[in-house]
Design a protein around this nucleic acid. Structure first.
Lengths: 343, 343
DNA sequence: TTGAAAGCGTTACCAG
DNA sequence: CTGGTAACGCTTTCAA
């Protein structure tokens, strides 16, 4: 029982039919007489036959698997991403392969190698080089997740720049702040790059001169604490507001600021991006931009799944809307209205 | 170029040799004359031949893949787990399949299905039923990650109970606290169950009566905030200390307590478990237990990899040591000594 | 409706 | 050293 060493051939012999018939029955394809079907089903049941995935995949020339590639695996953003991706893949009977490149030397090769084991791949923006992305796309359907696509590679992303412009304008106009610092490394990821551009754009729209440089740091809470040290460390005046590239950074800055005895938002305004679960829970709750991370990844999976079934047609990229979430860390009173940035 | 539609047979024809020779060259197995090797290599290079993974896997009767199964995918614990697992699998040229069951109805079937696509599986404790675990183990090598093993299934875990006893004793003896609350659901996972037992055990060792019930909650920061509401909400006296099943809960309780104007640790002592990155960064920094999560997962991957190569031998389980990390949230002054719980 | 046989792409055994 | 050929387990024509 349950031993999966049983093959079609054995079942065929046992049931006194051909392997073709066994295959037809076990797949529900073609026409099989009631009598045959019964005999086969019986044998399948009795010996616990389950078709071997490799044999099947080889014959179908399809792996029944999707790949997901990202740089690291830090924070709630990536866990959401994985779960969103999985939520589409699993019902489609595709298993999910993951690969964290950690930006290793040989990561491009590893991605290429993964492509040989799956039917399609989603790559988080900024993870691999453009030439590699192109080569990848020659092998399997590819979509860029949270990044810019290429001619042959569609992308799913959110409206980062407009969202960040909205948030920054809120600080500049509604709160009359001027001395803002942007925390995040635009070179690290397309998301951050677009947010930094949106941040600067808010100044431009008001004929103000934006800061010329962001505070370049990675995206974890740890880095936020570091940012607080740099910004509030003593030498030089502290900024009026810290605009963070994501919530984790913001949470780190918040912890650092609070730990120094500063009051937020009275002494320092802090904003995030993502609307991670903790953003609403801390005190003061974080003003941020909500982005549909799960949906983003689900959309990517859907795109790939479709491309696998209908090869040749390169679908358009997709941009998902975000929502500006005003809470108290920007200086607004509790219970302020929130507004989306639109589609 | 780069087109992976090229097969051994074509290369063989193109190079004027047999498929066997091509195979030998591309795998570096057997003896091949310099002349042949050169010809084959040339053709391989010219047509960008890469052996097909499925064909190879079918012939070798090995997938070159490992599976990792867990309930959800919340928080830093699971991201560490994945990365630790990957750090062993990737160098061994095995890809990593993941599956979040979300405790779905059909998750047992999904796990069984996954087992048909990989060479071995690591299952996080408490994710699937024991019968399913047993059936799984009939199919492929399995190891339980952070949980109890079975006769045929080894487990890798940490010394949860002694560690939690040490921490609790510290509160009871060194700080003279008596009214502690344990937050976490022992039914949810073996880890929590053991920690709850260790918590109670500290009381027993001192001939004290432990609380009979924990505050049963899930393991995310959100739940910690919930715990703070319940515990500090007004009706009934607040406890002296909240002993959390993990750091995320503790962080949530901390946020909730601070938000209510309580001072930590003066008004309320809070402890965690895991030593997540944030534990050291918040204010006050969290007293907790450090567990080697990455190492745990890496060990699991190694165990499986070995079992794949040497089938039949059921290896022993492994228990990794933890380290008690005393910081300020328990009431100790800054810079207190820390101590391990030993092997 | 059924079965024989030809793949799918690779590896490995066995002669030569 | 080299090549022919038989697996590996399955699906799918193509005839009967």
């Amino acid at each position: 029982m349950g031993n999966s060493r049983v093959t079609v051939r054995e079942i065929a012999r046992l049931a006194g039919v051909s392997v073709a018939t066994v295959s037809r029955v076990s797949n529900g394809t073609g026409q099989v007489s009631e009598e045959m079907r019964r005999r086969v089903l019986e044998a399948i049941e009795k010996y616990g036959y389950r078709p071997d995935h490799l044999g099947r995949a080889l014959a179908a020339r399809r792996h029944g698997a999707l790949g997901l590639v990202f740089p690291g695996l830090s924070g709630p953003y990536f866990t959401e991403l994985i779960q969103g991706f999985e939520s589409e893949a699993v019902p489609a009977r595709a298993s999910v392969h993951i690969l964290c490149t950690h930006l290793r030397e040989d990561s491009d090769d590893q991605v290429l190698e993964m492509a040989r084991r799956v039917d399609g791949v989603a790559v988080v923006g900024g993870t691999i080089s453009e030439p590699t992305l192109l080569r990848l796309a020659e092998t399997v359907p590819v979509v860029v997740l949270a990044g810019r696509g290429l001619e042959t590679v569609p992308a799913v992303s959110v409206d980062n720049a407009p969202a960040m412009t909205t948030l920054t304008r809120h600080l500049l106009v509604d709160h009359g702040l001027r001395d803002l610092v942007f925390v995040g490394n635009p070179d690290g990821s397309p998301d951050v790059s677009e947010r930094w551009a949106g941040f600067q754009n808010a100044y431009h729209e008001l004929d103000l001169a934006p800061p010329t440089e962001p505070l370049r740091l990675a995206m974890q809470q740890h880095d936020g604490v570091l940012a607080a040290e740099r910004l509030l460390g003593g030498d030089g005046p502290a900024p009026q507001a810290v605009v963070c590239a994501n919530d984790e950074l913001a949470l780190g800055v918040l912890v650092g600021a609070l730990g120094r005895g500063l009051r937020v938002p009275e002494d320092l305004v802090i904003t995030g991006f993502d609307d991670a679960p903790m953003a609403a829970l801390v005190s003061p709750p974080l003003t941020t931009v909500r982005q549909p991370v799960r949906e983003l990844a689900a959309e990517a999976a859907r795109l790939i799944l479709n491309a696998v079934d209908a090869p040749g047609v390169a679908p358009d990229g997709i941009v998902l809307p975000t929502e500006f979430v005003v809470r108290r860390s920007c200086g607004c009173p509790a219970g302020s209205p929130t507004g989306g940035t639109g589609k």
